[in-house]
């Protein structure tokens, strides 16, 4: 039993990172009602940008993160303004196809530039751990992931619930036409929401790049994780994203410990199916969302 403590702690900490991966998708999917299939690829693009900053420019991973994360806001804003908003005018389905196209393009551009080799952002913290007991230590990179994930969720939660822009995002997602009648430029609001979503993806991308190896085709893998997190936690719920991340992280790491590493993903998705069967709107989601 005591040997389960380490995977449980690691699973909870990994949940914070998973929440950071999912929060942008949750914002767009649950609030703006747009399924951004390129979310994972944008995240991995941030991982590669950080890698370039660290390896080519010689910055520390933290400085690289500070440089890369704000760069992704205008990228997301522009993507929504010049590509997705145009598709959105034709109905809710075209943006999904367009996002899939962006995903494929990004993967192939990354493949051309960086080759298919596995990469990771070299960071000293990746090998550090804080010993707690003889059988338990806390990996610093997981602690960082958890802390940053919780901070990102709190920031997005405050933004959506407490600010003028957040109110406009929620109003536009509920009733676009009435929101326009209230003086809200809904297309601009969608651009801001996408900018924020891609910024959170960039934060997750830097953390993932420091924690795991990544490839040009890693994006869809993280997109699946993000979907799992928001389905378990509840669509559109920021605190639900954290709960979903922790449940998925726990299921994967405890499952891997009990049944073997080959069963890690399977255990995660079995829990996802179980949550869907028992509580289809997620742990903290509302039935009508």
């Amino acid at each position: 039993m005591t040997d389960l403590i380490q995977p449980i702690v690691n699973g909870i900490l990994l949940g914070g990172l998973y929440a950071a991966v999912a929060i942008g998708l949750s914002l767009m999917f649950g609030i703006v009602r747009l399924i951004n299939l390129a979310h994972g690829d944008l995240m991995i693009t941030a991982s590669y940008l950080s890698l370039v900053m660290v390896e080519q420019v010689g910055l520390s991973p933290l400085t690289a993160a500070v440089m890369v994360v704000p760069m992704l806001f205008p990228a997301g804003f522009g993507l929504q303004k010049y590509v997705l908003n145009r598709a959105l005018r034709r109905g809710p389905e075209p943006p999904i196809i367009v996002a899939l196209g962006i995903s494929i393009v990004l993967q192939n551009v990354l493949l051309l530039i960086f080759s298919p080799d596995a990469r990771s952002i070299p960071a000293n913290v990746a090998v550090l751990a804080v010993p707690v007991t003889e059988n338990l230590s806390l990996p610093v990179i997981y602690l960082m992931g958890f802390g940053v994930g919780c901070t990102a969720i709190a920031a997005v939660h405050v933004l959506v619930r407490r600010t003028r822009l957040g109110r406009a995002i929620r109003a536009a997602s509920e009733d676009d036409e009435t929101a326009r009648l209230m003086g809200i430029d809904t297309e601009y609001v969608h651009c801001c929401a996408m900018g924020i979503a891609v910024t959170t993806a960039a934060v997750a991308g830097v953390l993932v790049g420091m924690t795991f190896t990544f490839y040009p085709h890693s994006g869809p893998q993280y997109l699946l994780i993000a979907f799992g997190v928001i389905v378990i936690g509840g669509v559109g719920s920021m605190t639900g994203a954290l709960a979903g991340g922790i449940v998925l992280g726990l299921a994967q790491l405890v499952g891997a410990h009990v049944f073997g590493p080959g069963h890690q993903l399977l255990c995660g998705y079995l829990v996802l199916l179980a949550v869907l069967a028992v509580r289809p709107h997620g742990i903290l989601g509302r039935a009508n969302s």
Binding site: R164, R167, A168, R170, E174, T178, A179
Partner: peptide
């Protein structure tokens, strides 16, 4: 806006 409070509706 059903998911916004009365005050939030007014602010919108």
């Amino acid at each position: 806006f059903g998911s916004l409070t009365v005050r939030e509706n007014l602010l919108v």
